[in-house]
Every structure is written in structure tokens, then in C-alpha cells.
């Protein structure tokens, strides 16, 4: 564990909490893609199948459980409790376009053709593109609430910090995981356009609005 990895985990946790608090306090999930949230929940389930077979540390286990509970909580709030506020007309990205390639790729390119390993690989590939329905929704409506922007910024920061963590680990520990690193780079690149808008607009107090 190094400071970049810890910061990445914290950024991820902050993103999840921002989203839950936004939905809970405003009693609305307007502007949030339920499809992205489903993909994140699927990602966590597929990746943390090793929760009971691969013990790493208390920290690791607790964080896994928190991520799982929070992602299920978010999906529950969106599709059950505050269903009436869910903006499904704008949440039209086709999930099979992301899930099927992720399944196919995880069966072809993995570290080991074993059940847990393939599920882990699938979760890595799926997570790298899971934000696309959300970004698609923002581009479709042409804007995002500030709080949604903060959520996306925290979520993008998480993977960017993980990249720094991987560089650090490569040089300090000789550790590297090519699958996680390449997928992580793809994932971070997807946020670049958003990062630019966030820094040039949201941080200056303006609403995130896409150029017409």
C-alpha cells in the first residue's frame, strides 16, 4: 500500500458517497445513468468473488464490502425507492455493447483460464467502460449538475491515481499487472474530455454545459 493507491481508494469511496448523498438528500436521481450504476455493481460482484477465498487484509475486505453495499444501495435507490425521478429517456446506451465484448475479451485475454481469474478479468474490462452510459447521458442532455460533475471527477481521479500507483509499484516492487494497467489507462482516457470541462468550467463556478 502506497499513498497513491490509498488516495485512489479514497477518491473512489468519495465518488460513491457523493452519489449516494446526492440521491438521498435531493430525493432524486435525475441526471444519473442507472445503466452505469448497474455496470459498476456487476463489476464489484465479479471482481470480489475472491472475498472469502483470497484474504489480503482487514482494510481490503472492509473496502470490498463497502463498495459492494454502496453500489447495490445506489441501484436500489435508483430503480426502487426513487424510481419516479430516474431519467430513463436519456439513459439509452445499450448495455450489451459493453457487456458482451467484455465477456469475450476476458475469455481470450486473461492471466489464467480459471473461473475466478476470468471473472476478475471481466470485471477489469467492464469497469474500464462502465462510465460510458453516464458520459453518453451527459452528452445527450448537454449538461450535468455540479454535484454530478464532482462525482465524475472523483471517479476519474480514482483510476488516474491507480496509474500513478502502478508506476510506483513497478519501480519500487517490480510489481505489474498488464491487464489492469492497460484497462486502467483506457478507463482514465475516457475521462479526459470530462476532466478538461471540469477544470475549465465547474471549478470556475460555472455549470458543466457542453458546447452546442
Amino acid at each position: 500500500m502506497n499513498v497513491f493507491r490509498l488516495s485512489g481508494d479514497v477518491a473512489h469511496l468519495i465518488a460513491i458517497i457523493i452519489l449516494l448523498l446526492k440521491i438521498w438528500t435531493s430525493r432524486s436521481c435525475a441526471g444519473i445513468s442507472g445503466k452505469s450504476q448497474i455496470l459498476f455493481a456487476v463489476t464489484f460482484v465479479a471482481r470480489y468473488l475472491d472475498l472469502f477465498t483470497n484474504y489480503v487484509s482487514i482494510y481490503n475486505s472492509v473496502m470490498k464490502i463497502v463498495y459492494l453495499l454502496a453500489s447495490f444501495g445506489t441501484v436500489y435507490l435508483m430503480y426502487m425507492k426513487f424510481k419516479a425521478t430516474y431519467d430513463h429517456n436519456h439513459d439509452t446506451f445499450r448495455l450489451e455493447f459493453l457487456i458482451l465484448p467484455a465477456i469475450a475479451l476476458s475469455l481470450i485475454i486473461n492471466h489464467d483460464f480459471a473461473v475466478i481469474e476470468v471473472f476478475w478479468t471481466f470485471s477489469i474490462y467492464l469497469e474500464s467502460v462502465a462510465i460510458l452510459p453516464q458520459l453518453f447521458m451527459v452528452s445527450k442532455t448537454g449538461e450535468a449538475e455540479s454535484i454530478t460533475s464532482h462525482y465524475l471527477f472523483a471517479l476519474g481521479s480514482y483510476r488516474a491515481l491507480y496509474i500513478v500507483n502502478w508506476i510506483y509499484r513497478y519501480y519500487m516492487e517490480g510489481f505489474y499487472d498488464m491487464i489492469a494497467t492497460l484497462a486502467g489507462i483506457v478507463q482514465t482516457v475516457l475521462y479526459c474530455d470530462f476532466f478538461y470541462l471540469y477544470i475549465t468550467k465547474v471549478l470556475k463556478g460555472k455549470k458543466l454545459q457542453l458546447p452546442a
Partner: peptide, 10 residues
Amino acid sequence: EGDVPAKDEL
């Protein structure tokens, strides 16, 4: 099996 990186990250 030996070349599978350890899964200690989240």
C-alpha cells in the same frame, strides 16, 4: 498459475 499477479488491489 505462477504468473498471475497477486490480487491485493481493489
